[in-house]
Nucleic acid binder design. Structure first.
Lengths: 131, 131
DNA sequence: CAGCATCCGCTCAGATACTG
DNA sequence: CAGTATCTGAGCGGATGCTG
């Protein structure tokens, strides 16, 4: 699932059939799995943010990734994009109601991850120590 | 985060610092995002499964992906692997307690995805219809 | 049956340069 | 400030062939 909406030659429509529902759910799970979506949504929890505020708040992201991540979130109806026609330009991003409910759900997953990070680390060390 | 454990030249240890916790959580979120982990874990809900049972239950997966997915889940302590020394060989995979708690958490995310799939589809159509 | 080993295409995501 | 355009390395994920 490309984060970029039609970057160069992205066909984006050659799935095998499988369950209809599966495919649709997959595109949503992919949002959780990709590198920045959750971080961006989390950053928007407190309220609207400008593009440059988000960029500053997310060390390691670059314009390209922030832009494409925001575009996908906007397309999915999770985030709204508001352009203020002024110079220099100002664009605000804000969570929609849908985006907020997603955040609630993801939050519990993040919680789980943080609570169990130690246990998983330990399991990995055991596994790596011997088969 | 590679699903393959050290495939060819995977260094696997050249992160930028960032928050320690962030990195560890990331490796867990990646499991949710990758193509097969959730499906495999879900398939194991009902009880232990043999390798070939899993393969049959997951149309589209191939041995390589099933094997590497199971290895990662095993390494993380989410799944146990039991080899029965017999001919032909038999290997059972089963969720651990940790794996089951992950499943609970992921289930609510899948729920969210299914409940909101229609809304997201509609948002996408609106977005694609005009900017 | 339950796997490794190998080859390879695709696209993700970073870096960099340019624009209204 | 808030993007777009382009190039590129890297690695995920699929296909195939072989083994104990």
């Amino acid at each position: 699932m490309p984060v970029q909406p039609a970057e160069h030659g992205s066909l984006a429509a050659d799935w095998e059939p499988r369950g209809e529902a599966d495919c649709r759910v997959r595109t949503i799970m992919d949002r959780v799995g990709d590198k920045w979506s959750v971080a961006v949504v989390t950053e928007l929890t407190a309220g609207p943010r400008r593009f440059s505020e988000l960029k500053r708040a997310l060390p390691g992201i670059n314009q390209r990734m922030l832009t494409s991540t925001l575009r996908v979130l906007e397309r999915d109806g999770l985030v709204t994009r508001t352009v203020y026609p002024q110079v220099p330009p100002r664009v605000d991003y804000e969570l929609t109601g849908l985006g907020r409910t997603l955040l609630d759900t993801v939050a519990s997953l993040l919680d789980w991850a943080e609570r169990n990070a130690d246990g998983i680390d330990e399991a990995r060390r055991r596994y790596d120590a011997r088969g």
